[in-house]
C-alpha cells in the first residue's frame, strides 16, 4: 500500500486565506453588505424556526390549549405531564434502541456502499458504465408506495418479518446517494490525484480510502445525516413488517398514541419533540464536516 500523494499545492490552507483576502477588497461596502446579509439570513432563520418553536410550545400545552382560539404562542406548563404520558404509554427505551440500531446501520451502510459506487462512476471508465448509471437514475423514478404487499410477501418468505434487518438491508445502498456523491466527486476529486495514485500502483480500494473518502467528507456527512433521518422517521414499512410489540421503532410506537376519536395532542407533540431531539444532535455533529477544509485530514499523510 503506497501512500497517496499530497494534493497539488493549492488548498492546504487556501480557504482561510481566501476569505481573509477577499474581504479587504470590498472594504467600503463590507459593513452595509454584512448587515444586509445578516438581515436576509435572519429572516430566513426566523421563518425556519417558527414552526419548530410552535411544536415546542404545543408539547408544553394541553390539547385544549393547542386548539384554543386565538392560538397560544407562549409556553404552557404541561410539558412534564405530557412527557410522562408518553413514557407511560410507550416503551421509549426499547423503541429508541431499535431505532438507533436501524438508523445507524442504514446510515453507515449507505455512506459506505454509495460512496464506493459513486467513486467508481465518477472517476473511472468501464464497459457498461453509462447503461448502468442510467438504470440507476431510472430506479429513482420508480414509484415505491405500491410495493408494500410484494415486499411484505418477500420478507415473510425469507423469514425476516418482525426483524430489524428487514428495515436495514433493502436500503443499504441507494440510487439517491450514489447520484449525489458521484456529482460531488466529479467536482471535488482532482483527476491528477487519482492518476498519481494509479502511477504509484494503488488499487481501486486503496485510492477510494485514501483519496475519495477524505475529499467527499461534506457529501458523506450530508448523506449520512439524511439517511439517518429518513430511517428514523420511516413509518409505513416498519408498521407493516414489524409484528411484535417489543420490536417497535420510535415512529410506530409514537403513532400508536393516536386514537380513533380523541387524541391527546399535547402528548403526541411531546412525543414528536422527543423523537426529534436526537436528530438535531446528529445534525450538529455531522454538519461540522460541511466546513471541513478539503485539504485537511487523511491526505496529508
Amino acid at each position: 500500500m503506497t501512500a497517496a500523494p499530497p494534493l497539488p499545492r493549492t488548498t492546504a490552507s487556501g480557504r482561510k486565506s481566501t476569505r481573509r483576502a477577499i474581504s479587504p477588497h470590498y472594504g467600503a461596502r463590507s459593513l452595509v453588505a454584512k448587515i444586509v446579509v445578516h438581515l436576509c439570513v435572519l429572516i430566513g432563520v426566523v421563518l425556519s424556526i417558527f414552526p419548530f418553536y410552535w411544536l415546542v410550545v404545543m408539547s408544553t400545552s394541553t390539547t385544549a390549549e393547542i386548539f384554543g382560539y386565538p392560538p397560544k404562542l407562549t409556553f404552557g406548563d404541561s410539558f412534564v405531564e405530557n412527557v410522562r404520558n408518553v413514557v407511560q404509554s410507550v416503551d421509549m427505551l426499547q423503541a429508541l434502541t431499535n431505532t438507533v440500531i436501524v438508523s445507524g446501520a442504514c446510515a453507515l451502510l449507505v455512506m459506505f456502499f454509495d460512496s464506493l459506487a459513486a467513486f467508481a462512476f465518477a472517476k473511472f471508465d468501464f464497459p457498461g458504465k453509462n447503461v448502468l448509471f442510467v438504470l440507476l437514475i431510472a430506479t429513482m423514478l420508480v414509484p415505491g408506495s405500491l410495493s408494500l404487499v410484494p415486499s411484505f410477501i418477500l420478507m415473510s418468505q425469507i423469514g425476516w418479518v418482525g426483524t430489524l434487518q428487514a428495515l436495514i438491508v433493502p436500503g443499504a445502498a441507494n440510487a439517491f446517494g450514489i447520484f449525489l456523491l458521484r456529482q460531488m466527486a466529479a467536482g471535488s476529486i482532482p483527476d491528477e490525484l487519482v492518476e498519481s495514485a494509479r502511477i504509484d500502483g494503488a488499487g481501486f480500494f486503496t485510492t477510494y480510502w485514501r483519496i475519495a473518502v477524505p475529499l467527499l467528507r461534506g457529501g458523506l456527512a450530508f448523506l449520512g445525516i439524511f439517511t439517518f433521518i429518513a430511517a428514523w422517521n420511516d413509518y409505513v414499512w416498519p408498521l407493516i413488517v414489524l409484528v411484535n410489540p417489543e420490536r417497535q421503532t420510535l415512529q410506530t410506537a409514537l403513532q400508536n398514541l393516536n386514537s380513533l376519536y380523541l387524541t391527546d395532542y399535547g402528548m403526541v407533540m411531546a412525543g414528536a419533540l422527543i423523537s426529534v431531539v436526537p436528530l438535531i444532535g446528529v445534525f450538529i455533529i455531522g454538519s461540522r464536516h460541511f466546513i471541513a477544509n478539503i485539504a485537511a485530514g487523511a491526505i496529508k499523510g
Partner: peptide, 10 residues
Amino acid sequence: LAGLQSIPTD
C-alpha cells in the same frame, strides 16, 4: 453547502 466546501480555493 456541502458542495461549496469542496470547491478548490485556488
